[in-house]
């Protein structure tokens, strides 16, 4: 299968000597829904900006569906749609005009652009706002406008840089639905987000970038499988006064009617429910204590940072000796 993106040894060094990307290698398959995660300043947006020609790379190569961004820049650009982190449209222009003009820049006839824009405006629930100036839209509408604009030329690769930042949960979920739909229709999607539950529920593969290096690149399933325990919060109908001990899992009382259970993933959850039934504790609801991906993400970054400081310490000692 053709690779949607192939990045080889990508470096970016700014004039102020900041080495933002330190030799990134990344392959993303066609049709993938791919999460590119990292803390603020890790290098996610720099990578995206280079892919989209918004920033110059220092060295390395990138090809988009086989088109090298240096040699076949025009063709590479035609494959990409970008939803940037910041609102970057002319706020004084009418909503539909922004989408139609973007199609025009790709050489698509105006009539076709208007038809496509109308469809996108309906799908993304912006139809009623089509004649309004973009500055009059709410934050969520502006985000959807940027998605509509990025889709006008029907790109094979859609890059979303924190597309749901500051968007309420209802709109976020409707945006997820739209993204899943276009992904199912064949559009490859790269998503960066700070909402890790978003990445966990949408993406099939993931790369984590830290301080300009890819520190993890695997499938979401494999990454999540690395957690050998899972922690749940259970609400009980009546207050729990006594908690008999068990070797099957650990159980702690958080308050009168909330229990925290940590269980090894190899064990069946039935064991837990049997235990509560035996002790006449009636469970009314159950949820994960924290997002699993979030837990792994924090652990990975902490490990990477520990390795860095260990290496730095080693160098310092070497110099001293």
């Amino acid at each position: 299968m053709t690779l949607a993106i192939s990045i080889k040894d990508l470096h970016k060094k700014y004039d102020n000597d900041v080495h933002a990307l330190k030799g990134i290698n990344l392959d993303i398959q066609q049709g993938d829904f791919f999460a590119l995660l990292g803390a603020n300043g890790a290098g996610k947006s720099t990578t995206i900006n280079i892919i989209c020609s918004l920033s110059n790379k220092t060295s390395g190569s990138i090809s988009i569906f086989g088109y090298d961004i240096d040699r076949d820049r025009e063709m590479a650009k035609e494959q990409i749609g970008l939803v940037p982190q910041e609102f970057n449209f002319n706020i004084f222009e009418p909503v539909r005009e922004i989408i139609v003009n973007q199609g025009g820049y790709y050489g698509i006839p105006r009539k076709v652009c208007i038809e496509r824009a109308n469809e996108l405006l309906h799908t993304l629930d912006l139809w009623d706002k089509r004649h309004e100036q973009a500055r009059d839209l709410s934050g969520g509408m502006k985000r959807r406008l940027m998605i509509a604009r990025s889709m006008i030329h029907q790109p094979k690769l859609l890059i979303l840089d924190e597309p749901t930042a500051g968007v309420d949960i209802n709109i976020r979920r409707s945006m997820w639905g739209y993204l899943q739909k276009i992904n199912a229709a064949g559009t490859t999607i790269i998503l960066t987000t700070h909402y890790l539950e978003e990445a966990e529920s949408l993406c099939r593969n993931i790369a984590i970038i830290n301080k300009g290096n890819i520190v993890e690149n695997t499938s979401m399933k494999e990454l999540l499988n690395r957690l050998d325990t899972e922690t749940f919060l259970l609400d009980t109908r009546e207050p729990v006064t006594q908690l008999p001990e068990t070797d099957d899992f650990s159980v702690k009382q958080r308050d009168d009617t909330t229990l925290e259970v940590t269980i090894n993933k190899s064990r069946s959850l039935n064991v837990m429910f049997e235990y509560f039934t035996q002790h006449n504790i009636r469970i009314t609801s159950m949820r994960n204590r924290s997002n699993r991906l979030e837990q792994l993400f924090v652990e990975l970054l902490e490990n990477d940072n520990d390795t860095d400081s260990a290496a730095t310490t080693g160098i310092t000692k070497g110099e001293q000796s």
Partner: peptide, 18 residues
């Protein structure tokens, strides 16, 4: 300058426009 200031010059930069 407005296109630079609002960032919408990026609309053209990411497109294949010469």
């Amino acid at each position: 300058f407005g296109a630079k200031f609002h960032g919408n010059i990026q609309e053209m930069i990411i497109s294949p426009l010469p």
